[in-house]
């Protein structure tokens, strides 16, 4: 009879080289799924948030309704929100992505409204005086000036979405969260720790990427020491 295997996997160690080498594809697959969910959700959030923010700005009466509704969604615990969506969106990827996009709305809409509001009135008047139409005013003057605040919101939304995606594991679509939940059920230490480290690393990397994007897009803010603060519900 062969002697019982004795390695870091059978000893269930937290850090285990054998785990990384034998299950690397599991980790990269989960990471890839995680990145996909985050990107699609945040992009969807942006696409929905932009018209809502413009509507709220155009029609003052709608602002309270839009901000209030997106904040109320934010209050609903994620596990419950995903579950309440199931009867409409089914089990799986769509529900997770829509749920996460709904969460990102709160932060994105608020920051878009705040950013646009902070554009100085005389700048706007000057542009109108120079003959800018509404579209060009928004695209060429207001949006660039609002960008630091919008990007601050986008960073917060992205980092939160990376963490929240793990809850998608309830629908078997949680990226790295799947490995964490399964690893907890089977008390697989190396898997839980590796997936956790990857989630946090992903959040940090995406946040740094967005900081880089912001620097490229708004070169005039580089010299300033303070960056815009995100407007977070509360």
């Amino acid at each position: 009879m062969a002697p019982p295997l004795d390695n870091c996997l059978t000893r269930n160690e937290w850090i285990c080289g054998r785990y990384y080498s034998t299950r690397a594809s599991e980790l990269t697959d989960a990471l890839q799924q995680h990145v996909e969910i985050v990107l699609i959700s945040v992009l969807l959030g942006l696409v929905i948030a932009a018209p809502l923010a413009l509507l709220a700005r155009r029609y003052r009466k709608l602002e309270g309704l839009i901000v209030g509704t997106t904040t109320a969604i934010y209050t609903i615990p994620s596990l419950a929100l995903f579950s309440l969506l199931v009867p409409w969106t089914g089990l799986g990827r769509r529900t997770v992505v829509i749920g996460l996009a709904l969460y990102s709305l709160t932060i994105l809409v608020r920051n878009m409204i705040e950013g646009l509001r902070a554009v100085p009135a005389d700048v706007r008047e000057a542009a109108l005086g120079m003959g800018y139409g509404r579209g060009r005013l928004l695209w060429r003057v207001e949006l660039p000036l609002a960008l630091p605040t919008i990007m601050a919101g986008l960073r917060v939304a992205t980092v939160s979405t990376v963490a929240l995606t793990t809850v998608g594991a309830i629908l078997d679509y949680g990226g790295l969260g799947q490995l964490i939940v399964d690893g907890t059920t089977t008390t697989f230490h190396a898997q839980v720790l590796a997936a956790t480290v990857l989630v946090v690393a992903l959040a940090v990397v995406l946040d740094l990427l967005l900081v880089g994007v912001q620097r490229v897009l708004t070169p005039w803010t580089r010299r300033r020491t303070t960056s815009a603060e995100a407007v977070v519900p509360g």
Binding site: V162, T166, V167, G177, I180, G183, T184, T187, T196
Partner: peptide, 19 residues
């Protein structure tokens, strides 16, 4: 606040419960 936002609840609870 920033750290709290980046660490998933699921992960922290798993680590504490298994650890």
């Amino acid at each position: 606040t920033n750290v709290g936002r980046a660490v998933p609840i699921v992960a922290l609870l798993s680590l504490l419960a298994l650890g």
